[in-house]
């Protein structure tokens, strides 16, 4: 017993020294269970978010108002699905399979980003998702490029490149609509009003109320606090909104000279907790859809597996 404790302590010491030196942790390195669990939770939540996010965006593919817009949207959603794929693969390096991860999503053990529990109601919502939602995600993901787990950090480098294209295309949609007819401007402002606050909530609770922060900082999974990142996002977005004539739906928003960033009004945390706990506009719809499609596709996956097994057997028999 004592010997085991010593081995564990030694392992933890080596691990933490590695982290402190700034070295990346790789799949075959020894790591504490807590670190592994934290990463599986965070990476799978990230992967599921990419995949569930395809639903609200996919909602507008068939109605995209120009061939160019349709191509951009199709390409963007494909990127998101691709991010889901390599995040699932990166999570698998921690010793969990994709089917287990999907099962955790279906049973409610794993979550996805709360933002996708909101509906896309007009074409400008596609702009708002790119500009605000992906814009908020980038702020978080840029910080994660230096996260301590190697496969996660490398996935982030690639994801960030594509997300910045997503943000630009979203902003382009908003800019075009603000330069358009009165109805288009109203749609854009309506989307802004509905997506602004949920986007701020994407950074999670205020630093004092964030439940997962402690070890994540010590182990350099997380490098900046929720509030730091939220401010970074607000500061870069306010000016972009002004340039195209959109109003930020926050009457308390003002520049704080002393702090060097914008102060924002109170976030409705009741709405946030109510929604992450299952009572948002689309929670049931999103999850039920994912489960339905997954179950309906079982026969295809079984067929592919049966075919592979037949072919393998044929090779052995020859």
């Amino acid at each position: 017993m004592e010997k085991t404790d010593t081995v564990l302590e030694e392992m933890l010491k080596n691990f933490e020294e590695k982290i402190n030196r700034g070295d990346a942790i790789e799949p075959k390195d020894k790591m504490p269970d807590g670190y592994r669990k934290h990463l599986i939770r965070q990476m799978s939540q990230h992967a599921h978010s990419e995949v569930i996010g395809m639903q609200p965006e996919g909602n507008w593919i068939t109605r995209a108002p120009s061939l160019r817009a349709k191509q951009i949207l199709l390409a963007k959603i494909q990127d998101e699905g691709g991010h889901g794929l390599y995040l699932y693969s990166a999570a698998e390096t921690l010793g969990i399979s994709r089917s287990e991860l999907i099962n955790q999503l279906h049973t409610g053990k794993a979550k996805y980003s709360n933002i996708f529990n909101y509906p896309t109601l007009n074409w400008a919502d596609i702009g708002a998702i790119g500009w605000l939602v992906d814009g908020a995600a980038i702020v978080n993901q840029v910080s994660l490029q230096r996260t301590s787990y190697g496969p996660y950090s490398r996935a982030m480098v690639r994801i960030c490149k594509e997300e910045s294209f997503h943000q630009r295309q979203g902003y382009e949609i908003m800019a075009k609509m603000m330069a358009g007819t009165k109805e288009q401007q109203e749609m854009a402002q309506d989307a802004m009003n509905r997506w602004w606050w949920p986007s701020l909530m994407m950074f999670g609770p205020h630093d004092g109320d964030s439940p997962h922060t402690g070890d994540a900082f010590k182990w350099k999974i997380k490098r900046h606090s929720n509030d730091e990142l939220r401010h970074k996002f607000i500061d870069k977005t306010v000016q972009q909104a002004e340039v195209i004539g959109l109003t930020i739906p926050d009457k308390d928003l003002k520049w704080n000279e002393a702090k060097g960033h914008y102060d924002h009004g109170a976030i409705n945390w009741d709405e946030f907790y109510r929604t992450i706990n299952g009572n948002g506009p689309c929670n049931r719809q999103r999850l039920a859809h994912h489960i339905k499609v997954h179950n309906e596709g079982a026969w295809v996956r079984e067929a592919a597996e049966a075919y592979r097994a037949k072919k393998e057997k044929a090779i052995f028999n020859n």
Binding site: Q55, T62, V293
Partner: peptide, 22 residues
């Protein structure tokens, strides 16, 4: 084909079919 977005039997097929649509 684009209607297969979020409706494929496996994520790889969602991507393949919508890529053909593109």
């Amino acid at each position: 084909l684009s209607e297969w977005c979020s409706n494929g039997p496996i994520l790889e097929e969602d991507l393949a079919l919508t890529n053909f649509a593109l």
